[in-house]
């Protein structure tokens, strides 16, 4: 017995270290790439990269909701819009510093998310999908309402002033916004990982795996399901606020159901429930339409659809599958050396 343990234990420990080291190395490499890339590219590319990070935050937020608690949402664009408008109105009408608008947007969206999560408690599956879908289609219309026009600017929308780099740093506005967005992304990533590893995260995942069993084990279903909605909405709101600052413009038609579908696609392509996949998913929805446009102007939609089908045929579990495959390869490589 003891001999078996002695031989097994070091091997298992070694396997864990290899696994740890592979993912740590991968994380460091990605972080270095994220830090260094803007130094070598043009301002427009920096802008695109910033939008990539912004959508990655939104996808991460949906991943927390769907991958974490198993609830489905096609209404993320509504919370994104709410965050964007909160930030834009605070900046333009109340002269609030742009950094401070992010927590404000998060708070507003958290409350909205919890309020929407309450009726959603009774719905699941396609019914929840339809309810959130309704929210997403209603949002642009609500933003256009005459009652709010003095704040929202109605159909015209609002123009947002682009912030300068602080402390007289000698970098362009675009580059500053990129690093600012990167910082926020990293913070949200860390928060999400910790959340999923916490007691709350385990409760959410128990709900995802089997609601009835979870409630039998004493998990408070309504509390954790609405909480998941609230947190997801808050993070999406932060993404929306950042998006508004980066694009310098908010208008109702920027936040249609198309946006919600794009966020959803990003999650599927990145791998449901795998947070780093959000970056890959976001890259798919930001850059692939451009590629499709380049291949064929008239058929760009068809090319996009075909590429999407190729992705889901080759890797039905998204970027997560690719990462697991890569990890297996790296392990084999490390073992042989």
């Amino acid at each position: 017995m003891s001999t078996i343990q002695e031989t097994v234990a070091p091997a298992a420990a070694a396997r864990v270290t290899i696994r740890r080291s592979v993912s740590t190395i991968a994380q460091i490499v990605v972080l270095l790439l994220l830090l260094a890339t803007p130094l070598f590219v043009k301002n427009f590319v920096i802008f695109q990269l910033t939008m990539w990070l912004v959508y990655a935050i939104a996808i991460m937020a949906l991943n927390l909701l769907t991958g974490g608690s198993g609830q489905f949402s096609l209404g993320q664009s509504a919370f994104y819009a709410l965050g964007a408008y909160t930030s834009a109105i605070l900046m333009e009408h109340a002269d609030v510093n742009y950094v401070l608008t992010l927590p404000a947007s998060a708070l507003v969206c958290f409350v909205a998310g919890v309020l929407f999560g309450l009726p959603a408690l009774r719905l699941s599956g396609v019914y929840l999908a339809l309810a959130t879908f309704a929210l997403a289609t209603a949002m642009p219309q609500l933003l256009k309402l005459g009652v709010f026009e003095s704040w929202t600017g109605g159909v015209q929308g609002l123009v947002v002033t682009k912030p300068d780099a602080p402390f007289h740093l000698p970098i362009s506005q675009d580059m500053w916004l990129y690093y600012f967005t990167l910082l926020v992304t990293l913070l949200i990533y860390a928060a999400s990982v910790n959340l999923l590893n916490s007691r709350t995260g385990r409760a959410m995942m128990a709900i995802r795996d089997n609601e009835i069993a979870a409630s039998a084990l004493g998990v408070n279903l309504p509390l954790y399901k609405t909480l998941a909605f609230g947190i997801s909405a808050a993070f999406t709101g932060i993404a929306g606020a950042l998006g508004a600052i980066v694009v310098q413009f908010v208008a109702p038609d920027g936040y249609t159901i198309q946006l919600a579908i794009a966020i959803f696609l990003g999650m599927v392509v990145g791998g449901v429930g795998w947070l780093p996949g959000s970056l890959a998913g976001s890259a798919f929805i930001v850059f692939v339409p451009n590629v499709a446009e380049n291949i064929s102007k008239g058929l760009s939609g068809a090319v996009f659809g075909a590429l999407l089908i190729v992705v889901i045929f080759v890797v039905p579990h998204g970027a997560r599958q690719v990462a697991l495959y890569g990890e297996a390869l790296a392990k084999k490589f490390l073992k042989n050396n």
């Binding site: 769907t66 489905f72 579908i261 959803f264 696609l265 999650m267 599927v268 392509v269 449901v272 008239g298 058929l299 760009s300 939609g301 068809a302 090319v303 996009f304 659809g305 075909a306 999407l308 089908i309 889901i312 039905p316 579990h317």
Partner: peptide, 21 residues
């Protein structure tokens, strides 16, 4: 045998292709 959400992505892909064609 793919996850349900992958199916939904498949529907969206089909939507884009048919509309564009």
């Amino acid at each position: 045998h793919a996850p349900i959400l992958t199916h939904v992505a498949g529907f969206i892909a089909l939507f884009a292709i048919i509309n564009s064609v």
